[in-house]
Amino acid sequence: MKQEFNYNKELSGKIALVTGGTKGAGKAIAERLLDAGATVIVTARNKPEENTDDLHFIPADLSQQQGTQKVVEEILNTYGRLDILINNLGASETPGGGFAVLTDDDWETTIRTNLLAPVRLDRGFLPQMVERGNGIIIHIASIQGKLPLYDSTLPYAAAKAGLINYSKGLSNEVSPKGVRVLTVSPGWIKTTSAIRMMERISESSNITIEEATQGVMDALGGIPIGRPAQPEEVAELVGFLVSPRAGYLTGTEYVIDGGTIPTI
């Protein structure tokens, strides 16, 4: 029997959490889910730059166990359940210079943020999803999980590779229980932070912003489509994956990188 979907409000009645949802791709994802009718909660260390009354904001440092516990307890106490979990939070603040300059703290902080935070949130929200036989978890990884850049983001790349592997294993366990688990791995995204980085490179190197952008694309080995992704393009993919239209999709990694990864 053919299913009919209301694309405009297909997530009406759903409760969704987007971590790192106050800027960049996370903000775009939160707005996309809101437009689809979901009740959307966002969490980050700092409050949104813009006041968005439609989003429920929970301040939390998810790199710490206390932060993830706070988010889980507040959402379950307030809403009673969570239907959609978007583990979008990701960060790399390690110095350049290769493996020799990286300390234990660099590694541990990066792994806590990029791998342990999603694991802890999954552990907090999965029991009620499994009990209801319904739920969706999206892990936002990175093409660096397969295409690591060793100079300054090796811990980030290793953590994202671990996240991709963990996501697949988790999907095998919980998909038979009604919970879909998927991974989205973006390439370079044109966020506000990326734009500011191009401006800094342009100023320090006395080149145009276009030349700075091309230099970053060259460092990635090229982007065949010729530009970084817009945050809204990543959000649109996530919006589809959490929708009823994607009900048969689970355990899969979706790469959205404009063709950056040079292999199949």
Rank of each mutant, 00 (worst) to 15 (best):
V101Q: 13
T109E: 15
I111Q: 10
A161Y: 08
R112D: 15
S185V: 08
P95W: 09
G187S: 11
G187R: 06
G90V: 04
H139Q: 15
R132P: 01
I189F: 13
I140W: 01
I189C: 13
I111F: 15
T103F: 09
A117R: 03
F125D: 02
T103A: 10
R120Y: 04
D105N: 14
P118N: 07
Q144L: 11
P186D: 07
L163K: 02
P148T: 11
K168D: 08
L116Y: 13
S175G: 13
Y150V: 15
G133A: 12
G124R: 05
W188P: 00
I111A: 09
F99S: 13
L154T: 07
L163M: 12
L154E: 00
Q144A: 09
T153C: 11
W107C: 12
G124H: 07
R123I: 05
Y166H: 13
G187A: 10
A157T: 07
I164C: 00
A141Y: 02
P155W: 03
N88C: 11
I136S: 06
P127Q: 08
I189E: 11
R132G: 05
S167M: 05
T94H: 03
H139F: 00
K160T: 11
I136E: 08
L149N: 09
T109I: 14
D122W: 00
S152M: 13
T153L: 08
G169L: 08
I164D: 10
D151S: 13
T113Y: 02
A91G: 14
N87C: 12
V181K: 01
L147V: 14
T103C: 12
Y166A: 05
L163C: 07
V119Q: 10
K168F: 04
S185W: 03
V184K: 01
G124A: 11
W107Y: 10
A141H: 01
T103W: 08
L163T: 05
P176S: 06
P186A: 06
K177F: 03
E108V: 14
M129F: 09
T183E: 04
Q128H: 12
I140G: 01
L170K: 05
S185H: 04
I136Y: 01
V130F: 05
L115F: 13
L121E: 06
P95G: 11
G178W: 05
G98V: 09
I138P: 01
E93G: 07
G124C: 12
E173G: 08
E108R: 15
L182A: 03
D122P: 00
S142V: 07
E93M: 09
D106M: 07
L126G: 09
A157M: 08
I138A: 03
I136T: 15
I138E: 03
V179W: 01
W107V: 10
L115W: 03
S142W: 05
E93F: 10
I136N: 10
H139Y: 00
V184D: 02
V101M: 12
R112F: 09
V101Y: 13
I164V: 15
R180Q: 10
A161N: 05
L149P: 01
R120I: 04
S92D: 15
I138M: 04
Q128L: 11
R123M: 05
A157V: 06
S185R: 02
V181Q: 01
E131V: 14
L149T: 11
L163E: 03
A117H: 03
I137P: 02
P176M: 05
N134M: 11
V184Q: 02
G169F: 00
G169I: 00
L149W: 08
S171L: 05
G178M: 10
S171N: 07
L89G: 01
D122L: 04
D122G: 12
I143W: 03
A91E: 15
